[in-house]
Amino acid sequence: MAKVYLINTNKNNNPDCEDEMLQNQKCSAYYTPWKYYIDTIEANDVVFLYSSGEGIIARGLATGIVEVNDYEGNENEEHYMNLNRFELLNSPLPAREVTAIIREIAGDDFDIQWNQTMILLAEHFGRKVWQQITRYCIH
Protein backbone atom coordinates (compact mmCIF):
# COMPACT_ATOMS: atom_id res chain seq x y z
CA MET A 1 0.00 0.00 0.00
CA ALA A 2 1.30 3.44 -0.92
CA LYS A 3 2.23 5.86 1.81
CA VAL A 4 1.32 9.55 1.75
CA TYR A 5 3.72 12.36 2.60
CA LEU A 6 3.49 16.12 3.04
CA ILE A 7 6.91 17.57 2.27
CA ASN A 8 7.81 21.15 3.13
CA THR A 9 9.45 23.03 0.24
CA ASN A 10 11.93 24.80 2.54
CA LYS A 11 10.73 28.21 1.27
CA ASN A 12 11.32 29.92 4.62
CA ASN A 13 14.98 28.87 4.73
CA ASN A 14 15.73 29.24 1.02
CA PRO A 15 13.06 30.28 -1.53
CA ASP A 16 15.19 28.83 -4.34
CA CYS A 17 14.50 25.34 -2.97
CA GLU A 18 10.79 25.62 -3.66
CA ASP A 19 11.37 26.97 -7.17
CA GLU A 20 13.77 24.12 -7.94
CA MET A 21 11.37 21.46 -6.63
CA LEU A 22 8.58 22.82 -8.81
CA GLN A 23 10.72 23.30 -11.92
CA ASN A 24 12.34 19.88 -11.63
CA GLN A 25 9.21 18.07 -10.42
CA LYS A 26 10.85 16.61 -7.33
CA CYS A 27 10.77 16.54 -3.55
CA SER A 28 13.91 17.37 -1.59
CA ALA A 29 15.33 17.65 1.90
CA TYR A 30 18.62 19.10 3.03
CA TYR A 31 21.21 18.30 5.68
CA THR A 32 21.21 15.67 8.41
CA PRO A 33 18.85 14.30 9.61
CA TRP A 34 16.19 15.67 7.25
CA LYS A 35 17.82 14.62 3.98
CA TYR A 36 17.52 10.97 5.05
CA TYR A 37 13.74 11.27 5.29
CA ILE A 38 13.63 11.33 1.49
CA ASP A 39 15.38 7.94 1.49
CA THR A 40 12.33 6.33 3.15
CA ILE A 41 9.96 7.22 0.30
CA GLU A 42 9.15 4.29 -1.98
CA ALA A 43 7.96 3.97 -5.56
CA ASN A 44 4.37 5.18 -6.07
CA ASP A 45 4.09 6.81 -2.65
CA VAL A 46 1.97 9.97 -2.83
CA VAL A 47 3.83 13.22 -2.24
CA PHE A 48 2.21 16.59 -1.58
CA LEU A 49 4.54 19.60 -1.67
CA TYR A 50 3.66 22.06 1.07
CA SER A 51 4.67 25.73 0.93
CA SER A 52 4.72 27.55 4.28
CA GLY A 53 1.95 30.11 4.47
CA GLU A 54 0.27 28.86 1.29
CA GLY A 55 -0.55 25.18 1.71
CA ILE A 56 -0.21 22.27 -0.69
CA ILE A 57 1.02 23.66 -4.02
CA ALA A 58 1.88 20.49 -5.99
CA ARG A 59 1.53 16.72 -5.95
CA GLY A 60 3.03 13.65 -7.57
CA LEU A 61 3.93 10.00 -7.23
CA ALA A 62 7.41 9.07 -6.08
CA THR A 63 9.78 7.20 -8.39
CA GLY A 64 11.42 5.42 -5.46
CA ILE A 65 14.89 6.41 -6.71
CA VAL A 66 16.86 8.63 -4.33
CA GLU A 67 19.24 11.11 -5.95
CA VAL A 68 21.93 13.17 -4.21
CA ASN A 69 23.23 16.68 -4.98
CA ASP A 70 25.56 19.19 -3.42
CA TYR A 71 23.72 22.02 -1.66
CA GLU A 72 25.02 25.48 -0.77
CA GLY A 73 28.55 24.33 -1.61
CA ASN A 74 28.31 21.34 0.72
CA GLU A 75 28.81 17.89 -0.73
CA ASN A 76 25.83 15.50 -0.89
CA GLU A 77 23.61 17.61 1.38
CA GLU A 78 20.47 17.40 -0.78
CA HIS A 79 18.57 14.14 -1.11
CA TYR A 80 15.76 14.28 -3.63
CA MET A 81 13.35 12.12 -5.57
CA ASN A 82 11.67 12.85 -8.87
CA LEU A 83 7.88 12.75 -8.95
CA ASN A 84 5.80 11.13 -11.68
CA ARG A 85 2.34 12.45 -12.58
CA PHE A 86 3.53 15.78 -11.19
CA GLU A 87 0.86 18.47 -11.04
CA LEU A 88 1.20 22.07 -9.97
CA LEU A 89 -2.03 23.23 -8.34
CA ASN A 90 -3.83 26.22 -9.87
CA SER A 91 -4.73 27.30 -6.36
CA PRO A 92 -3.04 26.08 -3.17
CA LEU A 93 -4.95 23.92 -0.70
CA PRO A 94 -4.38 25.81 2.59
CA ALA A 95 -3.25 23.99 5.74
CA ARG A 96 -6.51 24.77 7.54
CA GLU A 97 -8.46 23.05 4.72
CA VAL A 98 -6.19 20.00 4.78
CA THR A 99 -6.75 19.74 8.52
CA ALA A 100 -10.52 20.18 8.07
CA ILE A 101 -10.64 17.40 5.43
CA ILE A 102 -8.86 15.00 7.75
CA ARG A 103 -10.96 16.01 10.77
CA GLU A 104 -14.06 14.92 8.84
CA ILE A 105 -12.68 11.40 9.16
CA ALA A 106 -10.52 11.49 12.29
CA GLY A 107 -12.51 13.88 14.46
CA ASP A 108 -11.90 17.34 15.85
CA ASP A 109 -8.92 16.30 17.99
CA PHE A 110 -6.77 15.59 14.92
CA ASP A 111 -4.03 18.13 14.25
CA ILE A 112 -0.93 18.40 12.05
CA GLN A 113 2.36 19.95 13.18
CA TRP A 114 3.07 21.84 9.95
CA ASN A 115 6.58 23.01 10.88
CA GLN A 116 8.23 19.71 9.91
CA THR A 117 10.26 18.71 6.88
CA MET A 118 8.16 15.62 6.14
CA ILE A 119 4.84 14.41 7.55
CA LEU A 120 3.44 10.92 7.05
CA LEU A 121 -0.34 10.79 6.63
CA ALA A 122 -2.59 7.77 6.86
CA GLU A 123 -3.47 6.51 3.37
CA HIS A 124 -7.20 7.19 3.68
CA PHE A 125 -6.47 10.79 4.77
CA GLY A 126 -4.22 11.22 1.75
CA ARG A 127 -6.89 9.86 -0.57
CA LYS A 128 -9.38 12.47 0.67
CA VAL A 129 -6.83 15.26 0.24
CA TRP A 130 -6.02 13.99 -3.30
CA GLN A 131 -9.74 14.01 -4.16
CA GLN A 132 -10.19 17.54 -2.82
CA ILE A 133 -7.25 18.76 -4.91
CA THR A 134 -8.63 17.03 -8.01
CA ARG A 135 -12.05 18.64 -7.51
CA TYR A 136 -11.07 22.18 -6.58
CA CYS A 137 -7.38 22.96 -7.11
CA ILE A 138 -6.58 21.67 -10.60
CA HIS A 139 -8.39 23.05 -13.62
Rank of each mutant, 00 (worst) to 15 (best):
M1T: 11
A2R: 14
K3L: 13
Y5W: 15
I7Q: 01
N10D: 12
K11C: 05
N13E: 10
N13K: 08
N14W: 06
P15A: 01
C17N: 14
E18K: 03
E20M: 12
M21W: 08
M21N: 15
Q25C: 10
K26A: 14
C27H: 07
A29W: 05
A29G: 06
Y30K: 05
T32Y: 07
T32Q: 06
P33C: 07
P33F: 02
W34T: 07
W34P: 00
W34V: 00
K35A: 01
I38P: 01
D39S: 15
D39P: 04
I41L: 14
I41Y: 08
E42C: 10
E42T: 07
V46R: 12
V46F: 04
V46T: 14
F48M: 12
L49I: 15
Y50E: 13
S51E: 12
S51Y: 04
S52G: 09
S52P: 09
G53D: 10
G53H: 09
G53L: 09
G55M: 07
G55R: 06
G55K: 06
I56V: 15
I57V: 15
I57K: 01
R59F: 05
G60T: 00
A62Q: 00
T63G: 01
G64L: 00
I65G: 02
V66E: 09
E67R: 14
N69R: 15
D70T: 11
Y71Q: 10
E77C: 08
E78Q: 12
Y80K: 03
M81A: 03
N82M: 05
N82S: 08
L83G: 01
R85H: 13
F86A: 08
L88F: 00
N90P: 02
N90Q: 06
S91Y: 01
S91E: 12
P94L: 07
A95D: 13
R96P: 02
V98P: 11
T99G: 03
T99L: 12
T99H: 00
A100G: 09
A100I: 03
R103E: 13
G107S: 05
G107A: 06
G107F: 04
D108I: 04
D109G: 04
F110G: 03
F110V: 02
D111A: 10
Q113L: 11
Q113N: 12
W114G: 04
N115C: 05
N115Y: 03
T117D: 07
L120T: 13
A122C: 00
A122S: 07
A122D: 12
H124K: 15
H124N: 15
F125C: 09
G126R: 03
R127T: 13
Q132P: 04
Q132M: 12
T134H: 11
T134M: 13
T134G: 08
R135W: 11
R135D: 15
C137N: 15
C137E: 01
I138K: 00
